[in-house]
């Protein structure tokens, strides 16, 4: 028998995104370990994949994937499905942990006072526009022309300045920037209509 109050209840036609959001809420409300396991199985390998793409070693990628999911457990109550998709929220956590790890490793911002801890400058709780539904976002990305989706992918999955991305594609920097701009403008229109 299913308990209608638990996260493991799958509504008919429920999308993965909706299910993932409910799992996070079940962690927040009731500390459900089964919900955590299900989230872990879905997201940890994807977060690891994300970090590997950005050049992390397999050990570091695994460690940050672990740490990302543990942060999801600890901060589940801060997740607001009205403001962000589960994947968006988890992406921001993984991104911030990666930034923190990079800054600890090579201390690129050598703070003038060694007692300072470099915090992440990025709040994971930024106000969200109209984008809580990752299926819809994915569909919007799929409509981008190939040349635009290529630069968007590189902007997220290559840890290089846009000038270097331009060099590698043998394109002028201005072209890369304008493709990024066009891609984001198009996504804004497509997703803005969802409001």
């Amino acid at each position: 028998m299913r308990d209608p109050g638990t996260a493991m209840t799958l509504g008919v036609g429920e999308t993965t995104g909706v299910r993932m959001a409910r799992l996070i809420q079940a962690i927040a409300a009731r500390g459900e370990r089964d919900a955590f396991s299900a989230l872990f199985e879905h997201f940890a390998p994807r977060v690891k994949s994300y970090l590997l793409r950005l050049g992390a070693s397999p050990e570091l990628a695994e460690e940050i994937a672990q740490e990302t999911l543990l942060t999801v457990w600890r901060r589940a109550a801060a997740f607001d499905p009205a403001r962000a998709a589960a994947s968006t929220w988890i992406f921001t956590i993984a991104r911030n942990l990666r930034i923190d790890a990079a800054r600890r490793a090579n201390r690129p911002i050598a703070l003038d006072d060694p007692s300072d801890v470099a915090p992440s400058p990025i709040s994971p709780d930024l106000v969200l526009a109209a984008v809580q539904d990752e299926a819809r976002i994915g569909a919007a990305i799929a409509t981008l022309p190939e040349e635009q989706s290529q630069v968007i992918q590189l902007a997220f999955f290559s840890d290089k300045p846009h000038s270097q991305i331009a060099d590698e594609l043998s394109l002028p920097l201005g072209t890369v920037k304008s493709r990024l701009r066009l891609a984001m403008a198009r996504l804004r229109i497509l997703l803005g209509e969802a409001r």
């Binding site: 993965t16 995104g17 390998p45 994807r46 977060v47 690891k48 994949s49 994300y50 793409r53 962000a84 998709a85 589960a86 994947s87 968006t88 929220w89 988890i90 992406f91 921001t92 993984a94 991104r95 930024l126 106000v127 969200l128 526009a129 984008v131 990752e134 976002i137 994915g138 990305i141 968007i152 992918q153 997220f156 999955f157 984001m184 996504l187 804004r188 997703l191």
Partner: peptide, 16 residues
């Protein structure tokens, strides 16, 4: 926020 949502969707679509 829009860019982060795009990041989330791209993350979700990655091969595990």
């Amino acid at each position: 926020a829009l860019a982060e949502a795009v990041g989330g969707a791209l993350l979700d679509a990655l091969p595990p």
